[in-house]
Design a protein around this nucleic acid. Sequence first.
DNA 1: TTACTTTATGTATGCGCATACATATCACCA
DNA 2: TGGTGATATGTATGCGCATACATAAAGTAA
Lengths: 325, 325
Amino acid sequence: MAAVGRLAGVSQVTVSRALSHPEKVSPDTLQRIRDAIEATGFVPNALAGALASKRSHLISALVPSLTNIVYASFIATFSAQLRSHGYQVLLSETGFDTTSEQDLIATHLSRRPDAMLLTGIHHSQQARRSLLGADIPVVEVWDITDSPIDMCVGFNHVDAGRAVANFLYEQGHKNAATITANDERALRRQSAFSETFTQLSGNAVLNSNTGGPASIGAGRRALAHLIDDTGFQRGAVFCSSDLLAHGVLIEARARGLCVPGDMAVMGFGDQDFARDLEPALTTVAIDRLALGSVAAEALLARLVRPDTKQSIFDLGFKILRRASA
Amino acid sequence: MAAVGRLAGVSQVTVSRALSHPEKVSPDTLQRIRDAIEATGFVPNALAGALASKRSHLISALVPSLTNIVYASFIATFSAQLRSHGYQVLLSETGFDTTSEQDLIATHLSRRPDAMLLTGIHHSQQARRSLLGADIPVVEVWDITDSPIDMCVGFNHVDAGRAVANFLYEQGHKNAATITANDERALRRQSAFSETFTQLSGNAVLNSNTGGPASIGAGRRALAHLIDDTGFQRGAVFCSSDLLAHGVLIEARARGLCVPGDMAVMGFGDQDFARDLEPALTTVAIDRLALGSVAAEALLARLVRPDTKQSIFDLGFKILRRASA
DNA sequence: TTACTTTATGTATGCGCATACATATCACCA
DNA sequence: TGGTGATATGTATGCGCATACATAAAGTAA
């Protein structure tokens, strides 16, 4: 920066100003500085800038999995929104484990992010302490709670499970099964569903857990297991993700079962392919774009005015009735 | 760090050493320092550390799209591998546009990454210049070239297209069509396929471009278009991604076409669901995990010994014959 | 014992920038 | 003409750490 200044005939400070407050520099000086930057190929050192100004323009984000399109898509929105405000996102995968999340939080905090996004509302005590100590805006997404670390953006998973139970019961189903990935929030929806459905129909729900992440293959295998090993035959199947539901659809067809005639299938998430399946998948829509952008807005608001009050954003959900249930 | 030192009765330097070279600090001093760190909740400032040491332990990665599982999955491996060596990955989405890539490169370089990963081998001239100027290891992935900026890890897309053409021709197909997403590498495979297949069979290939990213819906619509508007009826369909092929399978079934009896379908990528479709998808397997880890290893090697010589890693591809073709 | 090495720690310094404050110049009005 | 305020630029400083170098203490071989 000093070298650029020398070339433009000004001091380092003026170069700094030309970059961050161009309106405070006279037009011709500005031009000379810009020419000098061009000529030298100067790239400002954001590390030094952050150290001096105590603002890193970095926002850290922790998601369970990058390969899960559900997280990837909302992070894409989140990042784009923040980028347009001059922030960069430092992204890491935590897995579904609060201890590894805790380590990552410490690592991320060492980069002095201006704010942080976490997935879910369950974090280790140590993690909460670090975050509180860091004194930066924090947004927890994909779930809501009355006592967020700072802010939260999401929806109520218990309500969602209940709503699906009511919906399927009202469609006339008396029997139901669930297929759920190994994900705390999905399990919460599952038990809410199960409880409500049993209460309505008087019949127990066959709950199953794939023991891993959601995938088409896992959905196929889960349905096969449900039919072959537990004798499930007719009724509704509520899957914790569209991906599982998709696998269920494939397996059902391979077995000659008619959906929704023999078996109604519901997914969760309204992923882009849901409408393109045969039959089109009935599912629960979550506005993932809104999730990403509301989370970004919330952080930005806090960064501008640290006393911004609203801290709980319930984005809700919507049952999308299509052909499969 | 000075405060921690005061509490432990040592200077700031000793604290710094305790953190980065614990073997150079006497055991009891080390313990006192660790207790002090624990007591104060001290989190080292990586920005200052990077500024002083000129090593940021940050590696920047630019991919076209985070929501494309194909990129997400190899980046997951790449990140995990680097994390285990003490590096963090700063990830951004470039879209499929070299100008926006160029801007992102500048932004990323301002954070002084120790190395950079780029997707593909086509970059703006300006981008190449910045990268060369930054003087850091660079790895370009998903493609290979004789003249990488620094290193490249991938496979030959022209060879892949040709191999698929040979494969389908040998299966006895005389007619073929292609459905390709709007992606430079996919288009290169398409034209290689097309040229080779025409040469072998004497018949022109019906090429189509979805004009956007690959998706199940796009695959369905593309097949519908192929059949309704261009009269394609029997033959082989080579899709630029498994996702498109999946859509083709659904549309074919919806139209009562038998796969592979009436129409053979090939995908590309061997995504996890390919084996779980009905019929199971014949596709081209790319070892994405290897891609991520070889790229990470290549960068790590360069970081340790800057004169490491090998710079082109051809990972190849493999045609996986399953039921759909 | 001397001289030399090893181990443990401290002092001084600077990485590259942003900020507070000082200074200089100029326009403008009384 | 002096005084006031606005505009443009510069000087001094420190952000929090890592590194080179200096020093002190203890061990080692002759």
